[in-house]
Measured scan of single mutants.
Amino acid sequence: QGDIVVALYPYDGIHPDDLSFKKGEKMKVLEEHGEWWKAKSLLTKKEGFIPSNYVAKLN
């Protein structure tokens, strides 16, 4: 089961498979690959890669 993270900063995706998000948006982490994680937005239901240093895990 994936962790839920919250965006600390907004992110505008650079690549087509990036997931753009707004500050405060919550996402479910699907896979962790070093600095880039695959996640699904709980708001938009879209999936893509996010920079892990832009988010914090919720406990």
Rank of each mutant, 00 (worst) to 15 (best):
W36Y: 12
I4Q: 04
K57H: 11
P51T: 01
A56E: 13
Q1M: 13
G2K: 09
V5M: 05
K26P: 07
F21I: 03
V6L: 06
K40W: 09
P10F: 07
L43D: 10
S52D: 05
G34E: 06
Y54E: 03
V29D: 01
G34R: 05
K26L: 15
S20V: 07
D17M: 10
V29P: 01
S41Y: 02
I50F: 06
K38V: 12
G34A: 06
I50D: 01
D18F: 13
L30K: 03
K46Y: 06
L42P: 02
E35Y: 15
G24Y: 06
G24W: 07
Q1G: 12
G34D: 07
D12V: 14
E25S: 02
K38G: 03
G13Q: 06
E31I: 08
I4H: 05
L19I: 05
K57P: 12
V5Y: 14
L58H: 07
E35V: 13
D12N: 14
E35S: 12
V5F: 10
A7E: 02
Y54A: 09
Y11W: 14
A39Y: 01
F21M: 04
V6W: 06
A56Y: 12
K46F: 08
K22H: 08
F49R: 13
G48E: 00
F49Y: 12
Y9S: 06
P51A: 02
I50Y: 01
H33T: 10
W36A: 05
W36I: 10
W37F: 15
Y9E: 07
E35H: 15
I14W: 08
I14T: 12
K45S: 12
G2I: 09
M27Y: 01
N59V: 13
I4F: 08
G2Y: 13
I50L: 05
V29A: 03
Q1D: 12
I14K: 13
W37Q: 06
F21H: 00
Y9H: 09
N53E: 10
V6Y: 11
W36V: 10
V5T: 02
E31P: 01
T44V: 02
K28E: 14
I4D: 04
L8R: 05
D18Q: 15
A39P: 00
G24T: 02
K28P: 00
G48S: 00
T44S: 09
L43S: 11
V6G: 02
D18I: 07
K28T: 10
D17K: 11
D18C: 13
K28L: 15
K38P: 03
V55T: 05
K57L: 12
L30S: 05
A39C: 13
A56F: 10
L42I: 08
P10N: 15
K45N: 14
K57I: 11
I50R: 00
S20T: 10
S52Q: 11
L19K: 01
K46C: 11
K57D: 06
W37C: 10
H33A: 09
D18G: 10
M27P: 00
L19S: 00
L43I: 11
P16C: 11
F21W: 01
M27C: 02
M27I: 05
L19D: 00
L8N: 04
T44K: 02
P51I: 03
G24L: 04
Y9Q: 10
H15N: 12
E47T: 13
P16R: 08
E25W: 03
Q1C: 15
G13E: 04
G2N: 11
D18S: 12
P16W: 08
D18P: 02
E31N: 07
I14V: 14
L43A: 10
D3W: 15
P51Y: 04
P51G: 02
L19Q: 00
E31T: 08
E31A: 11
Y54R: 09
K57V: 11
E32Y: 14
L30A: 03
S52T: 06
W36K: 11
K45H: 15
T44W: 02
P51Q: 04
L43E: 11
S52W: 08
K40R: 14
S20Q: 07
F49K: 08
E32N: 13
K45R: 11
W37P: 06
W36E: 05
G2W: 13
Y11F: 13
P16I: 09
L43P: 03
K22D: 08
S41P: 00
G34L: 05
G48R: 00
E32H: 12
H33Y: 12
F49I: 08
F49L: 10
H15F: 11
S52Y: 08
D17I: 06
Y9W: 12
K28W: 14
Y9R: 13
E31G: 08
L42V: 06
G48K: 01
G24V: 00
E32R: 14
V55F: 14
G13N: 04
V5H: 05
D17T: 12
V6P: 00
W37I: 14
Y54Q: 05
D3S: 14
L42C: 14
E32W: 11
L8K: 07
V55W: 02
M27A: 01
P51S: 04
L58R: 04
K26D: 02
Q1L: 14
Y11R: 06
D3R: 13
E25G: 01
L8I: 09
F21C: 03
E47D: 06
V6M: 07
F21D: 01
E47N: 06
F49V: 07
K26G: 04
S41R: 02
G24Q: 03
E47R: 06
N53R: 14
K28F: 13
Q1F: 13
H33W: 11
A56P: 03
V55R: 00
A7H: 01
K26A: 08
Y54G: 04
P51M: 05
N53L: 09
P16A: 11
K28N: 06
S20C: 08
P10W: 08
D12W: 12
T44G: 03
P10R: 12
P16V: 10
T44D: 04
G13A: 14
Y11L: 03
K57C: 10
G48H: 00
L42Q: 05
V5R: 02
P16N: 07
G48M: 00
S52K: 15
V6R: 06
E32V: 15
T44E: 03
M27N: 01
K57E: 07
L30F: 06
G2F: 13
G24E: 05
G13H: 03
S20R: 07
L58E: 08
P10H: 13
D3H: 15
K40C: 12
D17E: 11
V5Q: 02
L43K: 10
F49T: 07
G2D: 11
